[in-house]
Structure formats: C-alpha cells, structure tokens
Design a protein around this nucleic acid. Sequence first.
RNA 1: CGGCGAUUAGCGCAGUUUGGUAGCGCACUAGUUUUGGGUACUAGGGGUCGCAGGUUCAAAUCCUGCAUCGCCGACCA
Length: 575
Amino acid sequence: MRTSQYILATLKETPSDAEIISHQLMLRAGMIRKLASGLYTWLPNGLKVLRKVEAIVRDEMNKAGAIEVLMPVMQPADLWEESGRWEQFGPELLRIKDRHDRPFALGPTHEEVITDLVRREISSYKQLPLNLYQVQTKVRDEVRPRFGVMRAREFLMKDAYSFHLNDECLAKTYQIMHTAYCNIFDRLGLDYRPVIADTGSIGGSVSHEFHVLAESGEDAIAFSDASDYAANIEKAEALAPAIERPAPAAQLERFETPNAKTIAELNEHYHIAPTQSVKTLIVYGNPDEHGKRGLVALILRGDHELNELKADKHPLVFAPLEMAKEEDIVNAIGALPGSLGPVGLAMPILVDRSAAVLADFVAGANENGVHYRGINWDRDVNNFDVVDLRNVVEGDPSPCGKGLLQIKRGIEVGHIFQLGSKYSEAMKAAVLGENGKNQTMTMGCYGVGVSRIVAAAIEQNNDKFGIIWPTSIAPFELAIVPMNMHKSHRIPAIAEDLYQSLKAQGIDVLFDDRKERPGVMFNDMELIGVPYTLVIGERNLDNNQVELKNRRTGEASLIDITQAVEIISKAIKGE
RNA sequence: CGGCGAUUAGCGCAGUUUGGUAGCGCACUAGUUUUGGGUACUAGGGGUCGCAGGUUCAAAUCCUGCAUCGCCGACCA
C-alpha cells in the first residue's frame, strides 16, 4: 500500500473525550471514528488490525475442529421468550419492531438462534459432538458505553457453541476450547490469564474468563503467587482466618457517636480501627407467603468490601441483590444507615468469616448517633450464620491452599462456559440416542471479543510515540520511508524496487510516498505502530546501504541493499 | 437511573461575566523556503456558535425547554 493512495487519518491532537490510552491512540492513529455514543466506524488502519485478529481467531477455531456459520443480528422475540431471556435480559437487550409490529431483538449473543438451528438440523447422537462458531457483530445497549471500542454498543465477537450427548463429552470440548484460546492469545502476543469466572446472565456451571492484564481493566482478578490459581475477584473465595476467635475481654458499652456515619469517620473521630469494627448492610430477603420481602443483615469487617455476587447467591437473600431503601430500614430498625449493628437486630444475620473471628469490636447500636463497643459474638449476638461475603484483598491466603493472593486489573477478552442443558432443555433440543430414546443435548459456549482485543493489545503495547503492535496484528509489517524522495534521482527507483520485492515476499508493506518531511513520516509510522521501518536516504546510498529500524526496541541497523529483502523477511517471519 | 460538566471550522480551544456584524493554534489549498525527527513565511478556503422558542433596535453571549456527548456514582452503613 502507498500512503498517497490510502487514508492514514492520523491526528496530532487527542480528541478531548478519549479517556484511556488505547482509545486516544486508536483515534490518533486513524483506526476508528465515533459515529454516536458507543458506535464506531473502523477506518482502514483499524480494520486491517481487526481483520488480522479475526483471522487468528478463525484459524485457531478451525484447528480446534469448530465449523463456521453466520447467524442474523436480528432475531425474533419468540425464541427469546422460549428461553425465558426476553424477560430476564433487561434493557441491554435492544428490542425493535418490524413494519408488521412484530417484536425482534438485536442479538447480544446467539444461544437461542443456534439452539433453534441445531434442534432442527441435528437428530441423531451420531452427529455429535458438534461445535459451531461465527464471527459477528453483537449489539448490547450498554448503560454506559465507554473507553471507545472497549465497551461499545456494537462490537465484533467470535462466538462458538458446542453440542454434546453428555457432560463428559462437553468437558472434553471445553478443554479443547480452553487450549485453543490460550493458542489465540499466545499468537496475539498478549500477556493474559485464564481465570475462574462466574457465569452471569449466560448461565451454566463451569466457566473461565481470559483476561489481558492492564491497569485500565474493568475487572479485578486474584491469583496465587505460588500456584496457577487465578479467579475473577467476584468468584475468589475468602477463606476463614486461620485464627481462633479471642475470648471476650471487654464489657458491652454504649457510646455517643454523633459525628460518625461511616467507618472512616469512626476511625477519624473516635480512633476505632476499621479492622476492629464491623459494618452492617441491609438487603432484601426472599418474599414471605404474602409476597412481602423481609430484610437481611450482612455483617463485614470495617475494612472489607461486600462481594455482591456471594451475597446474591445466598439462599436467604433476594436475587438480584438490592440494598434496602432507607425508609424500609428506618421502619424495621428505627435507625438510619450509619448507626446500624448486629446487637438486638431482629432479622436474619449473615456474618462474613473475617468479621466472625472478631472480639470486643465496635458497631452501630441501631439508634441514631450511637455505637456499641466491646461487642462479642454469642455473648451479645445470637442466631447468626457465618458465610463468605467479602471480596478477597491482596495478601489473603489463596483458596487453592498454596501461596498468597495478588490482585491485578484485567480486560476480559474471552469467556468460556459449560452451559449444560439450560437452553437445550428450555428449547427442547434433543437427539435420538443409541437406545432409541430422545436425549436432551448438553451445551457449551465460547466467546472472544475480537474488537475489544484490538483495544486491549494497545493498552499493553504503547509508548509516548504511539502504538507498538505485535507483528502478528500490525496494520502493516513494514514501512518504507524514503528521505526527500522527490528531490532525489536515485531514491525513487530503489524504493520502488524494494517495495515490489518485499510485497512479492508476502510482506504487508506501507510505502510512504508522500511529499512530506522525514519527521512527519517517522512520527506517523511510529504512531500507527508499524513494527519495522526501512529508511532510504542519500546519506547511506553511497555505501549501498539502507537503515532498518525496530519500533519496539528503537534499534536501527544499516543493511546492504542487496540483502535487504532477505534480512527483512527473516526478521518478520521469524517472529 | 442519579449527580456534575460540555456543545463555537475536521481536531484542540478562546470569546459568554459586561449583548454591538465570530477568533486563535493544528489540519486543509496555493506559493516561496527548508530537507534525516511534526520547518518558516505569505496568501487563501472552510462556521445558520447543538436544536427550538422567547427577551431586545441588536443574541454565541440573557431567559425557557429539548437534544447530544462526556465524566463520576450506583459500597453508604
């Protein structure tokens, strides 16, 4: 490609609404432009990268035995009603009507469509297992689209769905997909971790997410420093402290705390360490026979955070988890949040493992502006359950039994699930088994956020000059930058000749034939992240040499023109 | 969904307090200049100042409503 016949579309200045580095660089490097909130046009530089990522994903899927299909974005509502997700999914599911006023959804995922396809097409166990995938645009009407294509309302996803006669077979394919995903992210040259994950709205039992490690990641992941245990923080178990609860030493004592509504204020004004106090969160419980929801108290050590997922899954807690409204709290307890505590609380009490080993601790007295000190479990509070409710923190022992937990931020770029029969049962997807009887299939599903990978790769590979692409997904593998070509007699022919020879080697070359100053060209090539730049200038031509620069290391070496094609091919293909 | 903020040329912004015929930098066009790291100069093109209504002799500027975009929050006990 020649820049004179291309849209480079680079920007000197950063558009003001781009917050994170990948979003800024994608705009500056001429990869994307915003159409509306969460909706982006892919310019040539961006699309080339997107297609290269897509090709790697596709290649590994094919190698893993999956078969490509393509399903519609627009899907009839009845399929979603059949699976029960028309009700469940919430406003993220973009619903539309056609001219006959019939309801449709724009697909945020394709379990319904694929299950419908397979139940029609597959009728015998002999056709299983089957793994189908597509690379397709997904639509999710995000509450808050942000960070460019990282969380967009329309994005490109590879989604695969596997069908099996039984769970053992599913587990086998799941493992194959796990390996295929590792291959994908290895080939992309990314620093990533597979982590144990929750199944969320997709459903199912076993699940792993693949995270690209980056400070800007929206998820926190916890992993052991001594084993390969890694989990999304929402899924990481907080083990019970290894210590015994000390015996009570202090008397229960009321004290006035007019200035303390938070743990921080309690610490600031009354010198009570957060680790020696507890916080009391009131949520809704399951409805009684009259349909009225009661309240449930969740007790955590002052310095700990509630893990909403853990609370949500407790049988006494109403799902989805919802913090009790202030008026409901006042009606039931007679005090406002900020002065709540477990002593004398007439509702089910769930105590986090770490809060349960405290003795002589501080909590609200269920009276505005009053706290108790010297509280002790069993002596002052009875009838409570000890459960795991909190988010793990750095330094906690790893649930795997080996090492301590570290916490890093990650960008979720892949997610695999063992779905089981959630969809196949609801949608009656069955095959005839060997015994001649109908048997419901069991399913797996496997997603890769193709467009998100592009942004995630930039988060991990950039410097002050711009993007540093891994060669496998760079928009171009090599840039030819001639110095003042239009003033030279020798350079045009040499540059043209090298351009043609390198192209013939199958190298993706960008020939910068603009009538621009060298600095402009260098800056553009560095910004868009081309891994190698070949500089052709009068200065070295007398020695029959050209200069090869490496974007990542910044190293430049002079090479002989006659050997240039060979050396460059080796450098690029050898990676 | 709640809070805050923004909206003036393709991009980044000033002008709004105090109403008086719309500006700067980058980008773009032409020319000169420069020539291995975003050269300099000259001359240009480009804007119904987000939209609708109102006040006024006069509105980017004041008032009302709406829209769009962004940020933060939705852990507060």
